[in-house]
Design a protein around this nucleic acid. Structure first.
Ligand SMILES: [Mn+2]
Ligand SMILES: [Mn+2]
Ligand SMILES: [Zn+2]
Ligand SMILES: [Zn+2]
Lengths: 143, 143
DNA sequence: TTCCTAAATAGGAATAATTCTTATTTAGGA
DNA sequence: TCCTAAATAAGAATTATTCCTATTTAGGAA
């Protein structure tokens, strides 16, 4: 039942394979919600009652510094995390905390070409992320 | 010495004109740093020793809800504020907390046209912001 | 101009998110 | 199997933000 690919990721980055790390990485990769540390912790406690919130924070931070996960900037004062590291963008809901992934290779290419051509003075572009702000429509309001 | 346009903005939004509001709005519009509430408070205290951090937070929140200023999403757990409300984007420095404004009407148009044409399923786009992540080069490293 | 009152503020307490500390446990190499 | 550096749990501490309440004040009404 343990996600083998998760173990591989940890190994590839030279990290000790611990049950906590496996569980945390598994949850963040499989939860698509851009969860907070607290959400992850609550979820983990269902199957792992003793996990400590401090460990969750520390582990997420470690993952982030190794590039295994990303932080997602948001308007609340609670950090959110993202298990998807391939280039993508985010749909921010004006009416709720919901943040959805938005994949669009055409957009990536468009922006990449534009920024490459543009040459912003005194700044070397390494990456970019588009925050698309708006509303999910009726059919899609739950979730 | 009091910035008259700041008073006008407050009046336009039907807010009481208080010394605190004038000072806070003046600072955030003139400070280009995307400052935190705390930075604003420290700065204000030079000329206004008794201003309360709670008032600063509350006032910034009021301004934001009236659309007079914006919040800027960032990676730290400290909210940052932006006195510029015309459409623009941000340059995020990988090596520091620095966030600079980036104005580019060509980019605005490009993205606007693209998103208008694209029609993201089940989502109505109201606005968008590009986070451009990278490094400021030597000449521009101070500030 | 003076008075009145709802709204705003100061100052401090409370809360929430995150980080830190330390004793204990454990992964994994020798 | 043993050893040790690294990881974890639990709780304390810190930091950012919000809340509470007594006091002050802006600005409309008289
Ligand atoms: Mn914090
Ligand atoms: Mn907080
Ligand atoms: Zn995402
Ligand atoms: Zn800005």
């Amino acid at each position: 039942m343990v996600n083998r690919s998760v173990v591989k990721i940890l190994a590839k980055h030279g990290m000790k394979i611990t049950p906590q790390r496996i569980a945390i990485l598994d949850v963040i990769i499989n939860l698509q919600n851009h969860p907070t540390a607290d959400t992850i912790c609550d979820y983990l406690r269902l199957s792992y009652p003793h996990i400590s919130i401090g460990t969750v924070y520390k582990t997420l931070d470690t993952f982030e510094s190794k590039g295994i996960i990303n932080k997602v900037y948001s308007e609340t004062d609670t950090m959110r995390y993202d298990g998807v590291i391939t280039q993508h963008h985010h749909l921010y809901c004006i009416d709720s905390e919901r943040i959805d992934d938005y994949y669009d290779d055409g957009l990536n290419k468009l922006l990449n070409d534009y920024l490459k051509k543009k040459k912003i003075p005194d700044f070397i572009v390494e990456d970019f992320k588009l925050q698309i702000i708006g509303r999910f429509n009726e059919k899609n309001k739950t979730k």
